[in-house]
Design a protein around this nucleic acid. Structure first.
Length: 268
DNA sequence: AGCGGAACCTGTCGGC
DNA sequence: TGCCGACAGGTTCCGC
């Protein structure tokens, strides 16, 4: 579910709401979402105070007074701050905070996870990530980073080692904005295409961020509100519907086992 | 090395 | 109504 704009929206809300809070106790309702041995995780987290929260690619890093907690929301994960003590059937881990509120990590599909890292311990998951996709890169820089790659450009955009933060929704929207067909081999892109990508990547992500991300089905903000960028999607999940620019029906194809959507007329 | 596909897990929806 | 397959925002592993 959550790509860069969604994770960023969540990080901003968490910064505002729980920075400085102390974790009184932790309940693990599903062991498999914890990367550490459960007892070790409980022991490490209980009594810690949350000093800061940052987004790294699609990950959330909670800086604690001792060590840190890395979180990934997988496909359907969310963090909900619950002041009303309601029950989420997909709650997997519950953090009881010192102001009597509860931070709930809920994840339907359990692809997401939490991992405690000791001070100074680096997670291998964060190694080799490309530059954050929100930061604009020069066309030349992009081209250089893509050197030697022959994979379709859509697949390259999903490669977190190329740029970090783009997922399936925004890859489609970025390529529509840049007028590039998702099947174009990376090594066949010309200067105009790289220029287009240099602009459309941060443009789409920032636009989505302004609208608090995209809610297709599961994504929710910390206060459980939906994002709004789904109302502005041009191609994603719009197969057979008319292109908003030229009325040509949007096509759906499968690349690397994932859906791609594009306008066969606007994207070449 | 780079690439595509399967696997991980759970739910929903459409067709027969 | 019920079953089955396809599909869903991500990452990692495996084989070619």
């Amino acid at each position: 579910m959550p790509e860069l704009p969604e994770v960023h929206t969540i990080a901003a809300a968490l910064q505002q709401k729980i920075e400085g809070r102390r974790i009184d106790s932790v309940e693990i309702l599903r062991d498999s979402v914890i990367k550490n041995p459960p007892e070790e995780f409980l022991l490490a987290l209980q009594g810690r105070s949350i000093q800061g929260i940052e987004r790294i690619a699609k990950y959330l890093l909670f800086r604690l007074d001792s060590g840190q907690m890395l979180a990934h929301l997988g496909m359907s994960g969310k963090f909900v701050l619950d002041e009303n003590d309601h029950n989420d059937p997909y709650a997997r881990v519950i953090f009881h905070l010192d102001n009597a509120s509860r931070l709930i990590f809920a994840e339907i599909r359990c692809f997401g996870f939490l991992e405690y890292l000791k001070a100074g311990q680096a997670s291998p998951r964060l190694q080799g990530l490309g530059p954050d996709a929100l930061i604009q890169q020069d066309p030349e820089t992009l081209k250089k980073r893509a050197q030697g790659r022959k994979t379709p450009i859509k697949n390259l955009l999903l490669d977190q080692h190329f740029l970090a933060g783009i997922g399936n929704i925004y890859a489609a929207e970025i390529l529509f904005m840049a007028g590039i067909r998702p099947t174009r081999p990376t090594d066949k892109l010309g200067p105009k295409a790289w220029q287009g990508l240099s602009e459309s990547i941060p443009a789409i992500l920032n636009l989505a961020l302004e609208h608090n991300g995209t809610t297709i089905s599961d994504y929710r903000r910390v206060d459980e509100k939906k994002g709004e960028f789904q109302n502005f999607l041009k191609v994603y999940q719009r197969a057979d519907q008319p292109c908003r620019v030229c009325k040509t029906p949007i096509k759906r194809i499968v690349q690397a086992a994932r859906s791609s959507f594009y306008c066969p007329k606007c994207q070449r």
